[in-house]
Protein backbone atom coordinates (compact mmCIF):
# COMPACT_ATOMS: atom_id res chain seq x y z
CA UNK A 1 0.00 0.00 0.00
CA UNK A 2 1.30 3.43 -0.87
CA UNK A 3 2.05 5.35 2.26
CA UNK A 4 0.00 8.53 2.40
CA UNK A 5 2.05 11.04 4.30
CA UNK A 6 0.07 14.27 4.02
CA UNK A 7 -1.39 15.20 7.41
CA UNK A 8 0.95 12.73 9.17
CA UNK A 9 3.29 13.67 11.95
CA UNK A 10 7.00 13.89 11.10
CA UNK A 11 9.53 14.11 13.81
CA UNK A 12 12.02 16.92 13.07
CA UNK A 13 14.18 19.05 15.28
CA UNK A 14 12.60 22.39 14.44
CA UNK A 15 11.29 25.50 16.17
CA UNK A 16 7.75 24.81 15.04
CA UNK A 17 7.89 21.26 16.39
CA UNK A 18 9.02 22.40 19.79
CA UNK A 19 6.36 25.10 20.19
CA UNK A 20 3.74 24.65 22.86
CA UNK A 21 0.76 22.91 21.28
CA UNK A 22 -1.71 25.44 22.68
CA UNK A 23 0.17 28.31 21.06
CA UNK A 24 0.16 26.42 17.78
CA UNK A 25 -3.58 25.89 18.09
CA UNK A 26 -4.27 29.56 18.70
CA UNK A 27 -1.96 30.63 15.90
CA UNK A 28 -3.57 28.20 13.50
CA UNK A 29 -7.01 29.58 14.28
CA UNK A 30 -5.82 33.20 14.04
CA UNK A 31 -4.21 32.55 10.67
CA UNK A 32 -7.23 30.74 9.29
CA UNK A 33 -9.47 33.59 10.40
CA UNK A 34 -7.15 36.10 8.81
CA UNK A 35 -7.14 34.18 5.55
CA UNK A 36 -10.91 34.43 5.50
CA UNK A 37 -10.71 38.20 5.85
CA UNK A 38 -7.93 39.27 3.51
CA UNK A 39 -8.93 40.75 0.16
CA UNK A 40 -6.10 42.75 -1.41
CA UNK A 41 -3.30 41.07 -3.39
CA UNK A 42 -0.74 42.62 -1.03
CA UNK A 43 -2.34 40.95 1.96
CA UNK A 44 -2.39 37.65 0.08
CA UNK A 45 1.27 37.93 -0.70
CA UNK A 46 2.09 38.95 2.88
CA UNK A 47 0.30 35.98 4.45
CA UNK A 48 1.75 33.62 1.85
CA UNK A 49 5.26 34.80 2.66
CA UNK A 50 4.70 34.26 6.37
CA UNK A 51 3.43 30.75 5.71
CA UNK A 52 6.36 30.09 3.42
CA UNK A 53 8.67 31.05 6.27
CA UNK A 54 6.77 28.68 8.58
CA UNK A 55 7.14 25.88 6.00
CA UNK A 56 10.87 26.40 5.82
CA UNK A 57 11.18 26.59 9.61
CA UNK A 58 9.15 23.41 10.08
CA UNK A 59 11.61 21.38 7.94
CA UNK A 60 8.80 19.12 6.71
CA UNK A 61 9.41 17.23 3.43
CA UNK A 62 7.29 19.58 1.34
CA UNK A 63 8.46 18.31 -2.03
CA UNK A 64 7.05 14.88 -1.25
CA UNK A 65 3.98 16.36 0.42
CA UNK A 66 3.13 18.44 -2.64
CA UNK A 67 3.70 15.48 -4.94
CA UNK A 68 1.14 13.51 -2.95
CA UNK A 69 -1.32 16.36 -2.83
CA UNK A 70 -1.15 17.10 -6.57
CA UNK A 71 -4.79 16.08 -7.06
CA UNK A 72 -5.75 19.08 -4.98
CA UNK A 73 -4.40 20.99 -7.93
CA UNK A 74 -7.27 19.67 -10.07
CA UNK A 75 -9.75 20.80 -7.47
CA UNK A 76 -8.20 24.26 -7.40
CA UNK A 77 -8.22 24.45 -11.19
CA UNK A 78 -11.87 23.40 -11.16
CA UNK A 79 -12.74 26.14 -8.69
CA UNK A 80 -11.06 28.79 -10.82
CA UNK A 81 -12.78 27.60 -13.99
CA UNK A 82 -16.22 27.47 -12.41
CA UNK A 83 -15.83 30.93 -10.89
CA UNK A 84 -14.52 32.39 -14.14
CA UNK A 85 -17.65 31.41 -16.00
CA UNK A 86 -20.29 31.95 -13.37
CA UNK A 87 -19.64 35.55 -12.35
CA UNK A 88 -20.85 38.37 -14.53
CA UNK A 89 -18.53 41.28 -15.25
CA UNK A 90 -16.01 42.43 -17.84
CA UNK A 91 -16.03 39.88 -20.67
CA UNK A 92 -12.80 38.51 -22.05
CA UNK A 93 -13.39 38.62 -25.79
CA UNK A 94 -12.64 35.23 -27.42
CA UNK A 95 -14.29 32.91 -24.90
CA UNK A 96 -18.00 33.43 -24.22
CA UNK A 97 -18.94 33.65 -20.54
CA UNK A 98 -15.43 34.15 -19.20
CA UNK A 99 -15.08 37.28 -17.03
CA UNK A 100 -12.15 39.04 -15.39
CA UNK A 101 -14.01 39.41 -12.08
CA UNK A 102 -14.87 35.73 -12.07
CA UNK A 103 -11.32 34.71 -12.73
CA UNK A 104 -9.95 36.93 -9.96
CA UNK A 105 -12.60 35.73 -7.54
CA UNK A 106 -11.80 32.11 -8.33
CA UNK A 107 -8.11 32.74 -8.01
CA UNK A 108 -8.46 34.29 -4.56
CA UNK A 109 -10.87 31.63 -3.41
CA UNK A 110 -8.53 28.81 -4.34
CA UNK A 111 -5.55 30.67 -2.99
CA UNK A 112 -7.36 30.85 0.37
CA UNK A 113 -8.12 27.15 0.21
CA UNK A 114 -4.51 26.39 -0.57
CA UNK A 115 -3.25 28.50 2.34
CA UNK A 116 -5.61 26.79 4.79
CA UNK A 117 -4.41 23.40 3.55
CA UNK A 118 -0.82 24.50 4.11
CA UNK A 119 -1.67 25.56 7.66
CA UNK A 120 -3.22 22.16 8.33
CA UNK A 121 -0.24 20.33 6.88
CA UNK A 122 2.17 22.33 9.01
CA UNK A 123 0.08 21.84 12.12
CA UNK A 124 -0.45 18.10 11.75
CA UNK A 125 3.07 17.53 10.50
CA UNK A 126 4.68 19.16 13.49
CA UNK A 127 2.35 18.05 16.28
CA UNK A 128 2.61 14.57 17.79
CA UNK A 129 -0.67 12.97 18.71
CA UNK A 130 0.18 13.02 22.38
CA UNK A 131 0.66 16.78 22.21
CA UNK A 132 -2.54 17.19 20.26
CA UNK A 133 -4.42 15.21 22.89
CA UNK A 134 -2.92 17.26 25.68
CA UNK A 135 -3.90 20.46 23.90
CA UNK A 136 -7.47 19.32 23.29
CA UNK A 137 -7.80 18.28 26.90
CA UNK A 138 -6.51 21.63 28.08
CA UNK A 139 -8.86 23.64 25.89
CA UNK A 140 -11.91 21.56 26.70
CA UNK A 141 -11.30 21.31 30.43
CA UNK A 142 -12.76 24.69 31.45
CA UNK A 143 -15.98 24.05 29.53
CA UNK A 144 -18.57 22.81 32.03
CA UNK A 145 -20.42 19.54 31.41
CA UNK A 146 -17.91 18.53 28.75
CA UNK A 147 -15.88 15.44 29.70
CA UNK A 148 -12.53 16.73 28.42
CA UNK A 149 -10.52 13.79 29.62
CA UNK A 150 -13.00 11.28 28.17
CA UNK A 151 -12.85 12.99 24.80
CA UNK A 152 -9.04 13.01 24.98
CA UNK A 153 -8.98 9.30 25.84
CA UNK A 154 -11.41 8.55 23.02
CA UNK A 155 -9.24 10.37 20.50
CA UNK A 156 -6.27 8.42 21.76
CA UNK A 157 -8.05 5.06 21.52
CA UNK A 158 -9.26 5.79 18.01
CA UNK A 159 -5.67 6.25 16.92
CA UNK A 160 -4.59 3.08 18.70
CA UNK A 161 -7.44 1.01 17.31
CA UNK A 162 -7.58 2.14 13.69
CA UNK A 163 -4.25 0.55 12.65
CA UNK A 164 -5.31 -2.62 14.45
CA UNK A 165 -8.59 -2.68 12.54
CA UNK A 166 -6.76 -2.32 9.25
CA UNK A 167 -4.47 -5.19 10.19
CA UNK A 168 -7.43 -7.29 11.12
CA UNK A 169 -9.29 -6.51 7.91
CA UNK A 170 -6.28 -7.38 5.77
CA UNK A 171 -5.84 -10.64 7.66
CA UNK A 172 -9.47 -11.57 7.09
CA UNK A 173 -9.17 -10.67 3.40
CA UNK A 174 -6.01 -12.74 3.01
CA UNK A 175 -7.59 -15.74 4.69
CA UNK A 176 -10.55 -15.47 2.33
CA UNK A 177 -8.34 -15.07 -0.70
CA UNK A 178 -6.59 -18.26 0.37
CA UNK A 179 -10.00 -19.87 0.12
CA UNK A 180 -10.61 -18.46 -3.37
CA UNK A 181 -13.19 -15.79 -2.58
CA UNK A 182 -11.99 -13.99 -5.72
CA UNK A 183 -13.56 -16.60 -7.97
CA UNK A 184 -16.97 -15.23 -7.09
CA UNK A 185 -17.13 -11.64 -8.30
CA UNK A 186 -20.30 -10.65 -6.47
CA UNK A 187 -19.26 -7.56 -4.47
CA UNK A 188 -22.15 -7.79 -2.01
CA UNK A 189 -21.05 -11.28 -1.05
CA UNK A 190 -17.50 -10.12 -0.52
CA UNK A 191 -18.56 -7.17 1.60
CA UNK A 192 -20.70 -9.47 3.70
CA UNK A 193 -17.85 -11.90 4.29
CA UNK A 194 -15.55 -9.06 5.26
CA UNK A 195 -17.79 -6.94 7.48
CA UNK A 196 -19.47 -9.65 9.53
CA UNK A 197 -16.27 -11.19 10.95
CA UNK A 198 -14.62 -7.79 11.21
CA UNK A 199 -17.50 -6.41 13.26
CA UNK A 200 -17.58 -9.48 15.50
CA UNK A 201 -13.85 -9.26 16.16
CA UNK A 202 -14.07 -5.53 16.74
CA UNK A 203 -16.78 -5.89 19.35
CA UNK A 204 -14.85 -8.64 21.07
CA UNK A 205 -11.73 -6.56 21.03
CA UNK A 206 -13.55 -3.49 22.36
CA UNK A 207 -14.97 -5.62 25.14
CA UNK A 208 -11.52 -6.86 26.12
CA UNK A 209 -10.12 -3.35 25.93
CA UNK A 210 -12.81 -2.06 28.28
CA UNK A 211 -11.98 -4.86 30.73
CA UNK A 212 -8.27 -4.11 30.52
CA UNK A 213 -8.82 -0.38 31.05
CA UNK A 214 -11.11 -1.02 33.98
CA UNK A 215 -8.63 -3.36 35.58
CA UNK A 216 -6.10 -0.53 35.41
CA UNK A 217 -8.48 1.73 37.36
CA UNK A 218 -9.74 3.82 34.44
CA UNK A 219 -11.40 7.01 35.64
CA UNK A 220 -12.12 10.35 34.04
CA UNK A 221 -10.37 12.24 36.80
CA UNK A 222 -6.87 11.61 35.53
CA UNK A 223 -3.52 13.27 35.91
CA UNK A 224 -3.82 16.65 34.16
CA UNK A 225 -1.39 17.25 31.31
CA UNK A 226 1.58 19.45 32.16
CA UNK A 227 3.01 21.96 29.75
CA UNK A 228 6.41 23.46 29.61
CA UNK A 229 5.81 26.85 28.09
CA UNK A 230 8.94 28.79 27.16
CA UNK A 231 9.90 32.31 26.23
CA UNK A 232 9.96 31.46 22.54
CA UNK A 233 6.30 30.34 22.73
CA UNK A 234 5.29 33.79 23.99
CA UNK A 235 7.43 35.47 21.38
CA UNK A 236 5.83 33.38 18.67
CA UNK A 237 2.34 34.13 19.96
CA UNK A 238 2.94 37.89 20.19
CA UNK A 239 4.40 37.84 16.69
CA UNK A 240 1.41 36.12 15.17
CA UNK A 241 -1.06 38.28 17.11
CA UNK A 242 0.61 41.44 15.87
CA UNK A 243 0.62 40.14 12.29
CA UNK A 244 -3.09 39.48 12.60
CA UNK A 245 -3.67 42.92 14.03
CA UNK A 246 -2.04 44.39 10.94
CA UNK A 247 -4.23 42.27 8.68
CA UNK A 248 -7.45 43.09 10.47
CA UNK A 249 -7.06 46.82 10.96
Amino acid sequence: MAQLIAFNYFYRDSVIHSLDVRIKFVTMILFSAAIGRITSPNQFIGVSLILLAAMVLSRLPFAELFRQMRYFGLLILGIIVIHSFSVSGTKIAPIPGLTVEGFVLGLFFSWRLFLVIIICVIFTGTTALKQLRKGIEWFLHPIPFLPASRIATMINLVFVLIPMLFDQASEILDAQKARCIEVNRNPIRRIKYLTVPLLLQTFKRADELIMAMESRCYTEERTRPVFNIKMKDWIFLSLSVSIMAVVFF
Binding site: N156, L157, F159, A212, M213, C217, T219, R222
Partner: peptide, 22 residues
Amino acid sequence: DSQIVGQTVAEDVAFGPENLKT
Protein backbone atom coordinates in the same frame (compact mmCIF):
# COMPACT_ATOMS: atom_id res chain seq x y z
CA ASP B 1 -2.69 -6.91 22.23
CA SER B 2 -6.08 -5.87 23.47
CA GLN B 3 -4.80 -4.34 26.68
CA ILE B 4 -2.51 -1.85 24.97
CA VAL B 5 -3.98 1.65 25.27
CA GLY B 6 -0.95 3.83 24.63
CA GLN B 7 0.69 5.01 21.45
CA THR B 8 4.13 4.57 22.89
CA VAL B 9 5.43 2.03 25.35
CA ALA B 10 5.93 4.68 28.06
CA GLU B 11 2.47 6.17 27.52
CA ASP B 12 0.92 2.76 27.92
CA VAL B 13 2.65 2.15 31.24
CA ALA B 14 1.60 5.63 32.42
CA PHE B 15 -2.08 4.85 31.86
CA GLY B 16 -2.62 3.25 35.30
CA PRO B 17 -0.83 5.83 37.46
CA GLU B 18 -2.53 8.63 35.50
CA ASN B 19 -5.88 7.10 36.40
CA LEU B 20 -4.87 7.36 40.03
CA LYS B 21 -4.17 11.08 39.52
CA THR B 22 -0.52 10.65 40.40
